[in-house]
Design a protein around this nucleic acid. Structure first.
Length: 931
DNA sequence: CCTGTCACG
DNA sequence: GACGTACGTGACAGGG
C-alpha cells in the first residue's frame, strides 16, 4: 500500500526506549556467557507491549523505530559543546545497542538511522513527508524537542505516562503553539543537551516574550522595547547565542533518506526469526509469551553456562621495540593525534623524574594506538655532560618544546569522545594535572585487572605483561641503574627512552584489548565502573591536598624519645649484665634464654629465639628486663617510624604530608597507604596517640573526623541475618555488652568490663573466621575454654555458623567470594590441603565482610565531592572506616551534616542493609582531638 | 632481600 | 593425632 490519505505512521524514538529499558531494569546478564542483556530485555518487552496495543481501529499502517547514529552531527560543528556534558554511555549498555537493532528487525519493524543525524531529525523529516502525503503521524517519545512537530495530523504519545500530546498539550508545556516551540527553547536553553539559551530566562519567561512579540526574530529585533532592564540587556547581549541555540534545537526536516514512507509498511513478524532471536537472548518468559500469542511452538533455550575461553587472545604482532617511533616535531605529532581522533582511544604513559607525583617533572609522553603501533615524545631529556654549576644541563637533541607538545596533546587528552587508556592512571593524571591537563575519560588496566582478579595475582604492569602477553618488559633498572648510582629518567639517552617508554604504552594497550572484554564475562563491569574508576580522581585529589604536619611537635617528641630510649637501654644493659643491641631480636633472645636461662625459649625457623611482644609479655610478669625491652621497643617504634620518618615526608613546597593510596593493593577492596603510611598512625596507646597532635589544621581551619561505628559487625549482622544483632543495632545498644548478656546470661545492667571484653574479642574473632586457638591466644585463656565460648556463641547465633559454612562452600565452588556490591575476591588456596586451606577459609569468611565495608566507604568517597560541593572543606585521609576533612571553622556543622549523610546512605540504593549505618563525628585543631 | 616486629583498622 | 591457626595492610631494623 502506497502511503497516502488514511494511512497512519508510527515513529518510535529508539534511543528513548533503550535508555528507559536500561534504567528500569537490574543489570541482567545472559546466563550462558554473561553478556549484559538487561536493556535488550526491557526493549523487547516494550516493543511487544507496543505491538499488542496496536489491535484497535486506530492501528498504524506504517511504523519505524528510529535510532541515532554517530556521535558527531551538524550541531557539533555549529557548537562544539553541544551535548558535551552528557555522561559517557555505561559500559554494560554499549554492547546492547546493536542488539536492540536486531531486536527491532526480529519484530519485523523497520529500523532506520542516518549517519551524522539524530533520530529527532529523521523523525521530523518523516513526519513532514507523511503530512504532505495526507496521512497521520504518531510520534512515540517523551522528548520535548519533538513537540515542535505536533499539529496538522501529527501528535505525540508519551509512552511513559501513556499520554497523548496534541497542540493543546504542547501549549500547556511550552506556553506557545508547536510552531513557536523552537523560539521558546532557543531562549530557555536546555541544560541536558547543553544548549546555552539566554541566561536567566526559563520556559515561562520565554513564552511570555514570544507571545508578546510574535516570534523570536521580531523579539530580538525589538529587544530595546523590553521594559525590564535586566531582561532587555540579556537579550541584547546574547542575541547571537540565542540564534545559535535556535539552530541547535531546530530539527532538520530535510534529512537525506535512502528510503521512503512506503518502506515502513507494517509487517507481521516471522515467528521463526523473532522466537529465534528471543531464544538466542535466553529470554524464557518473553519467548513463551510471544510464542503463545503467535500460536507457535516456543524453541528450546540452552542457557547452560559456557566455559569462557581463558582470554580473548586476539592476534597481535610480536612486541618489537625497534618499530617504535621517536616523535620529535609537530608534524609527526599531528599524524598521531589525527590517528587517535579517528580511532577514539589511545594508550598513554608518562615518563618523569620521580615516583613521587608531587615532585615529578614530566620528561616525556608515550602513546599507543594499536598493538605494535606506539611512539615516544621526549620533552625533557638532558644532554650529555654534567651541566652547569646548578646541575642543570642543556636539553638533548631531537625534542620538541614541552609547551608545544602539551598544547597539542591537551585537547585530545581532555576530549570526552576519546578514551585514554593507562596503567595506574592516577599517577599520570596527577603529573599531567600539574601541567594543566585534566585527563578524561579513561580506562585503567591495573584497575580492570583488580576488578577481575583480586586475590589471584598482582596487578602491576610487569606481572600483567608476563601473564597475559608472555612478555617481560624492559626493566627500568636497565636504564636508570640501581642504588646510589641510579639516575633520573631525564638522564636516559633519548634513543633508549623511546624503546622503554613506547613499549609501556604498547603493553598497556595490549593488556586493555585482552582484559577489558573480560569485565562483562566475569560480571564485574559494575564493580569497575562504580567502585574503581570513579575513585581515581577522588584519591588523586586527596593525595594532592595532603595534611599539614607540625615539624616542631615531631622534633620535640623525637628528642624526648631519644632520651627515654637511652635511659631504658642503660637499665636493660644493667639487668643483662652486659651491653648488647637491644634492637636485635637475635641478641635479645640469647640474653634471655641462654645467658639468663629464662623459661619459654622457642626457636623459629631461622633458629633464632622468638622475642615477640606476646613472649615478652609472658616473661614480664616475673622479670624486669623483658618489661623494659617492651617499653624500649614501643618508644623505638614511635621514634623511627613516626616522629623521625614523618618529618622527612613533609613536602618542601606545600609544608604538608602527601601519602599515596594503592587502589589495587589489598585483596579485599580496602585501600593501602604508603610513603608514608597514614593509615597506621598510633592511637591505641596514650604515648602513641600524642603523635596525632602533630597532624594539624592551618589557622582558621579545623580537622573533622567521621568514622563508621562498628561497620563490619553491622555488615555481619546483615549478611548472616542475625536478628538479635540487627535489633541491637537498630536500638542503638552496646553491641558487645548485648553479646555478652546473650552468651553468659548476664543482665546488661550487671555487666562487668571483663565479661564485655571477652564478648568483644569473640565478636571480632567471628569476623576473622574464629578458631579456638586464635581466641585462646587473644584472650590468654585455655584453649578448651575458648572453644566453649565459641560453641556457645554458635548455639546462640546459629546464623553465624551457617554464614561461615556457606561462604566457604561458595569459595570452594567458584574460586572466589563476593561482597554485597559484587566485588569478587578470589580464594585459590581454599581447596589446598594442610594449614594453607585453613588460612584460605578464614580469609574467605572475612573477605565479604571487610570487602563490603570497603565498598561502602568507597561509595561514600566517590559521592563526597558532590555532597560537600560549595562548602569550604577538603577531604584529606581515609583510614578504612574513617574519613578526615580539613574545614573552615565556620562550616564545621554543615560539613559534618553533609558528609555524615553521604556516609550513612552510601550503600543505597544498590544495597538496602537491614541494619542502620551510623557515623560518629569529632573535630579539633589536631587529629588527636578530632578522632 | 628476607625476617621479625609492631603500628593501624 | 598432628599440623598450625585469628582478617587485612606498611615501615623499620637487623643480618646475611
Amino acid at each position: 500500500m502506497s502511503f497516502g490519505k488514511g494511512c497512519h505512521l508510527h515513529l518510535i524514538d529508539g534511543s528513548a526506549f533503550i535508555f528507559r529499558a536500561y534504567h528500569a531494569l537490574p543489570p541482567l546478564t545472559r546466563k550462558s556467557d554473561g553478556l549484559p542483556i538487561g536493556a535488550v530485555s526491557g526493549f523487547c518487552n516494550m516493543l511487544q507491549r507496543y505491538v499488542e496495543g496496536n489491535n484497535g481501529s486506530d492501528a498504524p499502517t506504517h511504523v519505524a523505530v528510529i535510532f541515532d547514529k554517530g556521535s558527531h552531527t551538524f550541531r557539533n560543528d555549529l557548537y562544539p559543546e553541544y551535548k558535551a556534558n552528557r555522561e559517557a554511555m555505561p559500559e554494560d549498555l554499549r554492547p546492547q545497542i546493536p542488539l536492540t537493532r536486531r531486536a527491532t528487525e526480529a519484530f519485523n519493524i523497520a529500523c532506520k538511522e542516518v549517519e551524522g543525524y539524530e533520530a529527532d531529525d529523521i523523525i521530523g523529516t518523516l513526519s513532514v513527508q507523511a503530512r504532505k502525503a495526507g496521512g497521520r503521524v504518531t510520534i512515540i517519545s517523551s522528548d520535548k524537542d519533538l513537540m515542535q512537530l505536533v499539529g496538522g495530523g501529527v501528535e505525540m504519545l508519551d509512552a511513559m505516562k501513556n499520554r497523548l500530546i496534541d497542540v493543546e498539550g504542547v501549549e500547556e508545556k511550552f506556553g506557545v503553539g508547536p510552531d513557536r516551540v523552537v523560539d521558546v527553547q532557543a531562549l530557555a536553553g536546555d541544560s541536558v543537551d547543553n544548549v546555552p539559551g539566554a541566561p536567566g530566562i526559563g520556559i515561562k519567561t520565554a513564552a511570555l516574550l514570544i507571545n508578546e512579540y510574535g516570534d523570536l526574530d521580531t523579539l530580538l529585533a525589538r529587544a530595546e522595547e523590553i521594559k525590564q532592564p535586566k531582561r532587555r540587556q540579556t537579550l541584547i547581549d546574547h542575541a547571537d547565542q540565542i540564534r545559535l541555540s535556535r539552530q541547535l534545537v531546530q530539527l532538520d526536516c530535510d534529512t537525506p533518506l535512502d528510503f521512503g514512507l512506503d518502506d515502513l509498511e507494517v509487517r507481521d513478524p516471522d515467528p521463526d526469526v523473532l522466537l529465534g532471536f528471543l531464544a538466542e537472548m535466553e529470554f524464557r518468559t518473553l519467548t513463551k509469551r510471544i510464542a503463545e500469542a503467535m500460536d507457535a511452538e516456543p524453541p528450546e533455550i540452552d542457557d547452560t553456562p559456557q566455559d569462557a575461553p581463558e582470554a580473548d587472545a586476539p592476534e597481535m604482532p610480536e612486541i618489537d621495540a625497534s618499530t617504535y617511533e621517536h616523535v620529535q616535531d609537530m608534524d609527526a605529532l599531528e599524524i598521531w593525534l589525527k590517528r587517535i581522533r579517528a580511532q577514539g582511544y589511545v594508550a598513554v604513559d608518562t615518563e618523569t623524574t620521580s615516583l613521587n607525583e608531587m615532585q615529578a617533572e614530566l620528561v616525556g609522553v608515550s602513546l599507543a594506538t594499536q598493538p605494535g603501533q606506539a611512539c615516544y615524545i621526549p620533552l625533557g631529556h638532558k644532554g650529555e655532560g654534567e651541566g652547569d654549576l646548578f646541575g642543570s644541563a642543556a636539553l638533548a637533541e631531537g625534542q620538541m618544546p614541552l609547551e608545544d607538545a602539551l598544547a597539542a596533546l591537551k585537547p585530545v587528552l581532555e576530549d570526552a569522545s576519546i578514551l585514554k587508556i593507562g596503567q595506574n592512571m592516577k599517577y599520570d593524571a596527577k603529573v599531567l594535572a600539574r601541567y594543566g591537563i585534566e585527563v578524561s575519560p579513561f580506562d585503567d588496566t591495573m584497575l580492570i585487572s583488580y576488578a577481575l582478579h583480586a586475590g589471584l595475582h598482582g596487578h602491576g604492569m610487569d606481572a600483567l605483561s608476563e601473564r597475559y602477553l608472555n612478555h617481560t618488559p624492559i626493566p627500568i633498572k636497565s636504564l636508570l641503574g640501581t642504588g646510589k648510582s641510579a639516575v633520573t629518567f631525564d638522564r636516559v639517552p633519548v634513543a633508549d627512552a623511546v624503546k622503554y617508554a613506547a613499549e609501556d604504552a604498547d603493553i598497556t594497550l595490549r593488556l586493555w584489548t585482552v582484559l577489558k572484554p573480560q569485565l562483562h564475562r566475569a560480571q564485574v563491569t559494575r564493580v569497575y565502573e562504580t567502585l574503581e574508576r570513579p575513585l581515581v580522581p577522588v584519591l588523586a585529589h586527596m593525595e594532592r591536598n595532603g595534611i599539614k604536619v607540625d615539624r616542631d611537635v615531631l622534633s620535640r617528641m623525637s628528642g624526648a624519645f631519644a632520651q627515654k630510649m637511652a635511659q631504658l637501654e642503660e637499665e636493660i644493659h644493667e639487668l643483662a649484665g652486659r651491653k648488647f643491641n637491644v634492637g636485635s631480636p637475635k641478641q635479645l633472645g640469647e640474653i634471655l634464654f641462654d645467658e639468663m636461662s629464662l623459661e619459654g625459649g622457642k626457636r623459629g625457623k631461622t633458629g633464632a629465639y622468638a622475642t615477640g611482644a606476646d613472649v615478652l609479655e609472658d616473661l614480664a610478669t616475673e622479670y624486669e628486663l623483658p618489661a623494659r625491652v617492651l617499653d624500649w621497643r614501643q618508644i623505638s617504634k614511635l621514634k623511627s617510624t613516626y616522629t623521625d620518618a614523618l618529618q622527612d615526608h613533609i613536602d618542601p613546597d606545600t609544608g604538608r604530608v602527601h601519602t599515596s593510596y594503592q587502589q589495587a593493593g589489598a585483596n579485599t577492596g580496602r585501600l593501602a597507604s604508603s610513603d608514608p603510611n597514614l593509615q597506621n598512625i598510633p592511637v591505641r596507646s596514650e604515648e602513641g596517640r600524642r603523635i596525632r597532635e602533630a597532624f594539624v589544621a592551618p589557622e582558621g581551619r579545623v580537622l573533622v573526623s567521621l568514622d563508621y561505628s562498628q561497620i563490619e559487625l553491622r555488615i555481619l549482622a546483615h549478611v548472616a541475618g542475625i536478628n538479635a544483632l540487627k535489633q541491637a543495632f537498630k536500638d542503638g545498644q552496646d553491641i558487645h555488652a548485648m553479646t555478652a548478656s546473650e552468651m553468659f546470661n548476664v543482665p546488661i545492667d550487671e555487666m562487668t568490663p571483663e565479661i564485655r571484653r571477652q564478648a568483644k574479642a569473640i565478636n571480632f574473632g567471628v569476623i576473622y573466621g574464629i578458631s579456638g586457638f586464635g581466641l585462646a591466644r587473644n584472650l590468654r585463656i585455655p584453649r578448651g575454654e575458648a572453644q566453649g565460648f565459641i560453641d556457645r556463641y554458635f548455639e546462640r547465633f546459629p546464623g553465624i555458623r551457617t554464614y561461615m559454612d556457606d561462604t566457604v562452600a561458595f569459595g570452594k565452588k567458584h574460586g572466589f567470594v563476593e561482597t554485597l556490591f559484587g566485588r569478587k575476591i578470589h580464594t585459590p588456596e581454599i581447596g589446598a590441603s594442610g594449614p594453607r586451606a585453613g588460612f584460605a577459609k578464614r580469609a574467605a569468611i572475612n573477605a565479604p565482610i571487610q570487602g563490603t565495608a570497603a565498598d561502602v566507604i568507597r561509595r561514600a568517597m566517590i559521592r563526597m565531592p558532590d555532597a560537600i560541593a560549595g562548602l569550604p572543606c577538603k577531604m584529606l585521609l581515609q583510614v578504612h572506616d574513617e574519613l578526615l576533612f580539613e574545614v573552615d571553622e565556620g562550616a564545621v556543622d554543615d560539613v559534618i551534616k553533609a558528609a555524615r549523610d553521604a556516609m550513612e546512605s552510601a550503600a543505597e540504593p544498590v544495597v538496602k542493609l537491614s541494619v542502620p549505618l551510623t557515623v560518629d563525628a569529632g573535630q579539633g585543631a589536631n587529629w588527636a582531638k578530632a578522632h
